[in-house]
Simulated assay, not measured.
Amino acid sequence: MTTPLNSLDIAKPPAATRVVAAMSGGVDSSVVAALLKREGYDVIGVTLQLYDHGAAVHRAGACCAGQDIHDARRVAEAIGIPHYVLDYESRFRDAVIERFAESYLAGETPIPCVECNRTVKFRDLLGLARELGADALATGHYVVSRDLGTGHRGLFRAADAARDQSYFLYATTQEQLDLLRFPLGSIDKAQTRALAAELGLGIADKPDSQDICFVPNGRYADVIEKLKPGASRPGEIVHLDGRVLGRHDGVLRYTVGQRKGLGLSAAEPLYVLRLDADLARVIVGPREALGVREIRLRDVNWLGDLSLDALPVEGLDVAVRVRSTRAPREARLMRDEDGLKIELASDEEGVSPGQACVIYTDAGPDARVLGGGTILRPPLAMLTPAPAFAHAQP
């Protein structure tokens, strides 16, 4: 007789199904571990220490350190599961923090959460899950994975659009996705907090993490200066028309689309249009010059059924997100002699190199993630109007 699938889509009774629960110490991951334990799964809790917890014990809005590790351990004890804390600090520094600093110094605006998921959390933690003989690795992300009927699983937007974290998980590989499970993808945060209270976890009202975990109070420039002393060069703030409007203390202190904090006196509102790290130059201009219709990508991760080499000549109708806070927008995925290209159906503002462009099947609430990549800096000539100093580029 065929064994029916359990709630994790695995053909085993829950008691015979080993699950590693990634426990950050927050409400979401704690609820996941407790729910799975209540359903009778063989649950092992694992918490990663990602940076010096001594500096973060009393800092609200962080994760993976100090108080959070204590909270994860306390929840594991309360629900009666084994719990391990792994020191991944050196891995996290090499794979995430160092790359974060290098990207900012190159004039990009990176997303360390994507890199953390891609490397430490999923690659390394999944390796550990396999060593422990686990059938699945469960996390508290708000995203949905489903069996596609092909022997693989697909990644879909969460039921709660306000909490959907699919943007941050586009770099998950197919091998990783097949082992991952996301039990919270079909509910909202209010329901999760209610479950935490019902399960008696003692953290139902714990605030969500807000900042990048290793950046106190959002002051990322201070962290980069500490990691790379003297690496940030002062330079000029230049208008598109070639006028030098002022000076800056380093391109790492700016991001494309920024308006406030430029320290300029001008008759019109000015926005950061481009960061030129090679020439230590911040290029500014009017808001209409922020509009982008074409995006090029690097480090593409593809989860679609159709091979990228098999894209039709006319391209593929998709939807894309260029910021985590924006809804997917209609676009066309193309391939030419220079590689992959996204053609947007309408102008998108604030498209910043280093950020992610995530590709979906459509703009609907239940859209599947097809993949994504890191946004490349466009050529100067693509700015509208073209800058007066474009010929000065090396």
Rank of each mutant, 00 (worst) to 15 (best):
R153H: 12
Y104H: 14
H141N: 07
R99A: 09
F168L: 14
V43E: 14
R99Y: 06
L132T: 07
I79T: 02
V120E: 12
Q49F: 02
R157Y: 01
S90P: 08
A95E: 15
A171F: 01
V143M: 02
E131T: 10
I97P: 07
A60D: 14
D68H: 14
D52N: 12
Q67F: 03
G45N: 06
A158P: 01
R93G: 01
Y104Q: 04
D135S: 08
L137K: 04
R99F: 07
N117E: 14
E98A: 12
D124L: 13
G140A: 02
H58E: 15
R146D: 00
E102C: 07
L148E: 07
L148M: 04
G154L: 06
A78L: 11
E131I: 01
D68P: 01
V85W: 06
L125A: 04
D147Q: 03
A129D: 07
E131G: 05
K121T: 05
D135E: 14
H141V: 05
D147I: 01
Y167V: 01
P112A: 12
G151I: 00
Q165S: 07
Y88E: 06
H141Y: 03
G149S: 00
P110K: 09
F92H: 14
G149V: 00
G127F: 10
I69V: 14
D164L: 06
R123I: 03
A60N: 11
F122K: 00
R93T: 11
R146T: 00
A56L: 07
A159Q: 11
Y170P: 02
S103K: 09
I69M: 15
R93K: 05
V144F: 01
E108Q: 15
E115G: 04
S90T: 14
R123S: 09
A76I: 06
V43A: 10
E108Y: 06
E89R: 14
C116P: 11
C63Q: 13
L148F: 00
V120D: 09
Y167M: 03
E102M: 04
V114T: 15
T109P: 08
L86Y: 04
L137G: 03
L125M: 13
G151V: 00
G66T: 06
C64D: 14
R74T: 12
E98I: 04
L137E: 07
A159P: 00
E115M: 09
D68V: 02
A62Q: 14
Q49W: 06
Y170H: 15
A60W: 13
R146P: 00
C116V: 08
G61F: 08
R93S: 07
A72Y: 02
Q49V: 07
V120P: 10
G133D: 04
C113E: 15
L148D: 01
Q165F: 09
G66E: 08
Q165H: 10
E115N: 09
D147W: 02
R163K: 12
T150E: 02
V46R: 05
L86P: 03
L128P: 03
T109Q: 14
N117A: 13
N117C: 11
R153F: 09
